[in-house]
Every structure is written in structure tokens, then in C-alpha cells.
Design a protein around this nucleic acid. Structure first.
Length: 481
RNA sequence: CGCGGGAUAGAGCAGUCCGGUAGCUCGUUUGGCUCAUAACCAAAAGGUCGUUGGUUCAAAUCCAACUCCCGCAACCA
């Protein structure tokens, strides 16, 4: 049995779970479930990123200790992940003492590629933060929040020498040893890589106190990258000697699922860190697009942010998974609107699939057709699509099969056979239809695990009976948005 | 000239690499069926494939120029 390790980006805990996080988890989950179905042993990491000034500030605002605040927020994400039916195996928190300790050891091992230098930039005393040149220009040199001019300030930072790894990272990406999907993003990364600067990986404690202390320099704290990115390996126990065998059994990751906004960090800084440690690079990085709200990017200022919990509450988990795995493309930006969501639920889930289960089960019950047997996943076209991380296409392929069964029922006209008492023929036809639906249920499992389970239960029973309540009930107009 | 993506039926998209009757889903219209959640099945209507020019027997597809949208540019998922 081969081992599959799947990673998702760890969200920053200064806010609530967002639709975008759900896309990470669902895509990774579909892949994880698929991997298990074809006989692999799977480890699937999720977690939370908890250091940094923003979190620290939020904690103070809410009058909580930073430990309490991060614990509460981390738990929110954990609840969310569980609500989505995600089959993760490991949950990592960057404030976890094991992570912190391992992270410091990683820093030590990278020391040959780390140097200290002065960072000079525009600083606002009110914000206690540097701003980019662009921001400085846009605000004409004055902080809009504090009405104070920015000051030129310099501070000591440690830097990771990206230059040491550029050639090798480029080679790995070009040769698809580190595969970046979708293909057009690979081109983007290669362009960015050409003039990627060294990256700052620390801040003075005065600037940033809530973070992992830099080893052997108590005036500095690690900045987000080294801390957060390391989670993918610290969760496996790296670099503890005691965990060595376990780590090498799982690493490198088969796939890392992230949003397009953080691709540059995962495709440049992260590989550089790994090369610096003498480790393998992940096999594939899958960068999905954004979920738009009515065609526009979700933003607080536009007020069009869609709360995933509200979506989840409307029709339940399976409908949520259905929409975000089939109508949100695996790679491109996709749109969400309540109208589309309602359409997908009513016309596709309820009419195509829900109704199919209902009509076929009723036909079986009326004609005393016994349940069928469940076979293993062996559809090569489907397997190829899933292996290529084309989950949307794979799901479409499954749906085509759902529609084909509806068609097959119409063509076979079992109700005519029953009326004419052609019982042998009828039993033959019905058993064939049941077998087809069961094979679809197997293909459906990575996307809609609960629904697949229900279908399997109904159609493998010794006596097939229609579900007492439809799988996807309609007439829900009384429900609130 | 910062980098990249896109423009195809009312909507959302595939097809473009390897030119050859323009396809899918939803919506609309009509017909069929009655096992089923007023569900299912079939058929039809609907497109100058962003613009202009070029190559070719033939261009959504190749080439050139242009227009318009949208992302990204060291902590916004």
C-alpha cells in the first residue's frame, strides 16, 4: 500500500472561516478520499497559523490573552473543517510547542543560507508598521489612519538567501519534478522566480513580539514564512530524530492545495527552505482560483462576502460540497450566487440524483428486486482525471453517468415489462440498473460521502426500499437565506 | 511597453496546442412517458466565435495589430 500525504494551506486566525478556505479543504478532501478508494494510505494535514501582529492586536482588542484568543479562533476553524466532513488526519497549530521547537531547529539547519541586514523603509509610528513604496505614494507620504507623515526607518532583519536555490527550484519546476497546476500558473511562477529577491524571515522583538524566537538571538522573532510554511513538515515530526522513519515514510507530500494568492510563497520560498534542509520537494502544488460573489471579488468594503456557514445551513453539507466541488472549478475563478446555488440544488441534486434514487428504489421495491453488490473503484477515465487533479471534470464525468441512468430507465421501460409480466427480462434490466447506480455511488464518494453511503445502504440491502424522506427534498421555500 | 488570464447562443463554460458541417449545462418552447421529489426522456428555437487585416481551397482555431474586462506586484483566502 503506498502512502499519500496531502497538505492544505493553514489559515491565519485573525478572522472567521471564509468560503475560500472551504475550497482548499474540499478539493484536498476529494483527493484524499479518492486516494483511499484506490487503496492508498492517506495522511491529510490541516491547521492554523497563529503568530504575528494582527492576531496579537486582535487579542488585545477583545481583552483576551493572546493564547486564549488564538485557541478560540483555531477551534473555530477546526469546527468548520469538521462541519465540512473533511477526512483530515492531522491538525497543526503554529503555537504548538512541538511546532515552535521544531521550527527553531529548522532555522539552525538553514543558517548557511541566512544572513542579517538592515531593512530600510517607510514606517508609521501609529500603525507600528512599515508600508510599501506603493502605499507610501498612494497616501502621499501621510498615514491615512493616523494623519502622520511616514518616517524613514531602518531595522535589522534576517534574510533567507533565495539566490542560493533559484537555479535548482527553476530546474525542478521546469522538469515537473515540482509540478505546478494549473499549467498557466507554472509560467507565472517561472517569471516571478527570475527576479525573486531574498526574503526577510525575522523582525526585531520590538516590532513583533508574538512569534517564534530566533535561536541564539533574543532580539529577533521569526516572521511568518519560515514559521508557517514549516508546518507541513513539523506536523510529521521533522526534524526530531525519534520521528525520522515516520517522516521519511510520508514526505514528500503528494499534493499541496492552496489558493492562487499564496502560490508564490509555496512555489519559491517553500522549495528554497526544503532544498536548504536537503529535503525532497512536494510532488504537486495545486493552486485554485477565487470564489467570486455575483461576479465580483468578495470584499468587506463591497459588502458582498458570502458566509460559508449561511450556505451550509441552507441545504446542508452535501449540497455545499456539491456546489463547491462541481460548480467551483478546480483551477479557475468561479462564481457563487444564491440563485446559482438554488438552481444547482433543485435541478441537479434533487431532480437528477435525488429523484433517480427515489424512482429506482421504488421500482425495485414494487418488483421485489434484491440489492446488488458493491465493486471496487476501477473506472480508468475517472481515475486519470482525479490523478490529474481535474476534480471538476471528474465530477462532471460522474454526473454524466447519473444522467445516463435516468436515460437508461426511460429506454428500458421497466413499468411496461411489469405490466406485461415479463418477469425474467424485468429482473435482468433492474439488476443492471442497480449495478450501474452502485458503481456511480463509488465514484461519488470522494465528493458526496454521505450521499454515496445512503445510496449504497439502500441498494445493497437484501430488500430495496425507497428512503422515507427524499435525499434532497425540495419545497424548501420556507427556509431562510 | 511590469507579469499573467480572459472575450464563443439569455447566463455559465468547453472547443484553440495538432485549421475542415460550432458543442455542453442551465434557462425558453413543443412533444413523449407515468417508475419517480409537478420529477424523467426526446426534439426545437437561439451564436457575423471582441475588432480589423493577413496566411490558406478552408480560420473560433495559425500570424499581426487593436479594443475592452479581470487578477497579481514581500502578511487581504
Amino acid at each position: 500500500m503506498s502512502k499519500t500525504y496531502i497538505c492544505t494551506a493553514i489559515p491565519y486566525v485573525n478572522g472567521n472561516p471564509h468560503i475560500g478556505h472551504a475550497v482548499d479543504y474540499l478539493q484536498a478532501d476529494a483527493y484524499a478520499r479518492f486516494s483511499r478508494a484506490i487503496g492508498n494510505e492517506v495522511r491529510y494535514q490541516v491547521g492554523t497559523d497563529e503568530h504575528g501582529n494582527k492576531v496579537y492586536g486582535k487579542a488585545q482588542e477583545s481583552g483576551l490573552t493572546v493564547e486564549t484568543y488564538t485557541s478560540q479562533n483555531s477551534q473555530k476553524f477546526r469546527d468548520f473543517i469538521e462541519k465540512l466532513g473533511i477526512s483530515f488526519t492531522d491538525f497543526v497549530r503554529t503555537t504548538d510547542p512541538d511546532h515552535v521547537r521544531r521550527c527553531q531547529e529548522i532555522w539552525r539547519r538553514l543558517e548557511d543560507h541566512i544572513y542579517s541586514a538592515e531593512y530600510e523603509g517607510w514606517y508609521c509610528e501609529g500603525c507600528e508598521n512599515f508600508v510599501t513604496q506603493k502605499e507610501f505614494d498612494e497616501n502621499h507620504g501621510i498615514c491615512p489612519d493616523h494623519q502622520k507623515p511616514y518616517q524613514k526607518l531602518s531595522e535589522k532583519n534576517y534574510y533567507l538567501r533565495i539566490a542560493d536555490f533559484k537555479t535548482e527550484v527553476r530546474r525542478r519546476i521546469e522538469k515537473n519534478e515540482l509540478r505546478i497546476l494549473p499549467e498557466f500558473r507554472k509560467q507565472e511562477v517561472l517569471k516571478l522566480l527570475a527576479d525573486a529577491p531574498d526574503v526577510s524571515i525575522s523582525r526585531p522583538v520590538g516590532q513583533l513580539s508574538w512569534g517564534v524566537p530566533v535561536p541564539d538571538d533574543n532580539s529577533q522573532v521569526m516572521y511568518v514564512w519560515l514559521d508557517a510554511l514549516s508546518n507541513y513538515i513539523t506536523v510529521l515530526g521533522y526534524p526530531d530524530e525519534a520521528k525520522k522513519d515516520d517522516f521519511s515514510a510520508w514526505w514528500p507530500a503528494t499534493a499541496q492545495f492552496i489558493g492562487k494568492d499564496i502560490l508564490r510563497f509555496h512555489a519559491i520560498i517553500w522549495p528554497a527552505i526544503l532544498l536548504g534542509l536537503g529535503l525532497e520537494l512536494p510532488k504537486t502544488i495545486v493552486a485554485h482560483g477565487y470564489v467570486l460573489s455575483d461576479g465580483q471579488k468578495m470584499s468587506k468594503s463591497l459588502g458582498n462576502v458570502v458566509d460559508p456557514i449561511a450556505v451550509l445551513d441552507r441545504y446542508g453539507l452535501e449540497a455545499f460540497r456539491y456546489y463547491f466541488l462541481r460548480h467551483v472549478d478546480a483551477f479557475a475563478d468561479s462564481d457563487f450566487s444564491w440563485e446559482k446555488y438554488d438552481n444547482a440544488y433543485n435541478n441537479e441534486l434533487a431532480n437528477d440524483l435525488g429523484n433517480l434514487v427515489q424512482r429506482l428504489a421504488t421500482l425495485c421495491a414494487k418488483n421485489q428486486i434484491p440489492g446488488g453488490t458493491l465493486l471496487n473503484l476501477d473506472d480508468n477515465e475517472y481515475i486519470d482525471l482525479m490523478r490529474a487533479f481535474e476534480s471538476t471534470k471528474a465530477f462532471n464525468y460522474v454526473w454524466q453517468k447519473v444522467q445516463d441512468i435516468n436515460k437508461a430507465i426511460d429506454e428500458a421501460k421497466p413499468w411496461v415489462l411489469a405490466k406485461e409480466q415479463r418477469t425474467v427480462e424485468l429482473a435482468q434490466v433492474m439488476q443492471d440498473l442497480v449495478a450501474k447506480l452502485l458503481s456511480v455511488a463509488v465514484l461519488l464518494e470522494p465528493f458526496l460521502p454521505q450521499t454515496a453511503e445512503k445510496i449504497i445502504t439502500i441498494f445493497t440491502a437484501s430488500e430495496i426500499l425507497p428512503p422515507t424522506t427524499p435525499l434532497f427534498p425540495k419545497n424548501l421555500e420556507s427556509r431562510q437565506r
